[in-house]
């Protein structure tokens, strides 16, 4: 009981520590004390600009997008009662990236900045509807993953196609950004574009707590408990599309966060979906901030993509999940 109550404060402390680490690390290599002083007081104008206009938006986006991905993973797994549900695997992130790519490279986003998050949101929503529609609530893991793989590959292929056909030769090398994700050189503009949608989406997903708790008993039981399942569905799909879509619009599709974090935290919070939701948000934020810090520590000049690091942690974990599922089925 006590350890479970400690989970959230502990995760909060870890997230805060990683947020500060993310602020303090960067190619400028200024000492921590001076950097923080510049951030807070604004003396040393050049360093203050670095801290306020480059590092702070980056750290905030890491925090927000990580939390959105972790929370969306936990919510989807709870709603679909499927351990493999995750924005990345279901093709939601890839479709959001396609929407963002269409908005950005056609020049639409330059005319109308809101087009970037809105089209990503549209892509994410379409993919969620399609995959969940195909596989169905409480449909088998197999159909869900098959539909997810199909949507994911199609959206990835179309993203690559759009970028390859762009008249700007640099666009083709940006396939990596959109398929793997990065927080490099993001600014306040991206925070203000994505932030409101991420917060709104996370708000919708957090409203799911009671519904998900009831759904663990099965759909019929949930309905008899007075859970309006239509509303549950709207919250899960809309919240995921808004939170994940807006994140992808400014940082590309970052995989594995939504898969790994809920699984890691589920035993810790005692397998309760309602307690898992806030924990997964904090865990996702920590995971993404750590990945972004690692990207800057390992090869600062190379602009390592976040998806590379999350997959390095996530893929072995995913394999373990496959292994245990197989044993359980056998």
């Amino acid at each position: 009981m006590t350890p479970q109550r400690l989970v959230l404060p502990l995760l909060g402390a870890v997230t805060l520590a990683l947020f500060v680490a993310s602020l303090l690390l960067g190619p400028a290599g200024a000492p921590a004390g001076r950097s923080l002083a510049a951030l807070l007081t604004g003396d040393n104008p050049a360093l203050a600009l670095v801290m306020r206009e480059i590092r702070l938006p980056r750290a905030l986006l890491g925090l927000g997008i990580g939390a959105a991905l972790g929370l969306a993973g936990a919510a989807l797994q709870g709603y679909l009662r499927n351990p493999l549900a995750e924005p990345g695997l279901l093709g939601v992130s890839a479709a959001a990236a396609l929407g963002a790519v269409l908005a950005f490279y056609t020049g639409l986003a330059a005319l109308l900045p809101l087009a970037l998050p809105l089209m990503a949101l549209g892509g994410a929503f379409a993919a969620t509807l399609l995959v969940v529609g195909l596989a169905g609530v409480a449909g088998g893991a197999l159909t869900l993953i098959l539909a997810g793989v199909a949507v994911s590959s199609l959206a990835g292929a179309l993203t690559s196609l759009v970028l390859n056909l762009s008249p700007n030769p640099f666009a083709a090398s940006e396939i990596m950004f959109w398929l793997l994700g990065s927080l490099a050189d993001r600014s306040w503009m991206h925070v203000t574009l994505a932030g409101p949608f991420i917060l709104a989406g996370m708000g919708l997903l957090l409203l799911l707590a009671r519904d998900l708790e009831a759904l663990t008993l099965g759909e019929d039981a949930a309905r008899s408990l007075g859970i309006p399942l239509g509303r549950t569905r709207a919250l899960a799909l809309g919240g995921t599309a808004a939170a994940v879509g807006a994140g992808v619009a400014v940082a590309g599709a970052i995989g594995f966060v939504g898969l790994v974090v809920p699984h890691l935290l589920r035993p810790v919070v005692g397998h309760s979906p309602s307690r898992l939701l806030p924990a997964a948000a904090l865990g996702g934020a920590s995971f993404l901030l750590a990945a972004d810090v690692a990207a800057r520590l390992i090869a600062p000049e190379r602009d390592l993509k976040l998806g590379v690091l999350t997959a390095l942690v996530g893929a072995p974990f995913f394999l373990r999940l496959v292994w245990t599922t197989r044993r359980r089925l056998a």
Binding site: P27, A28, V50, F104, P167, E174, F177, D185
Partner: peptide, 27 residues
């Protein structure tokens, strides 16, 4: 990186011609 440029404050930055169409690289 932009951070390094800000702290180094060079006298002259020469940017090349850009393609008229959008790319993150040119932002």
């Amino acid at each position: 990186s932009l951070e390094e440029l800000l702290l180094a404050q060079p006298d002259l930055i020469i940017v090349g011609d850009t393609y008229g169409t959008p790319a993150l690289a040119e932002e």
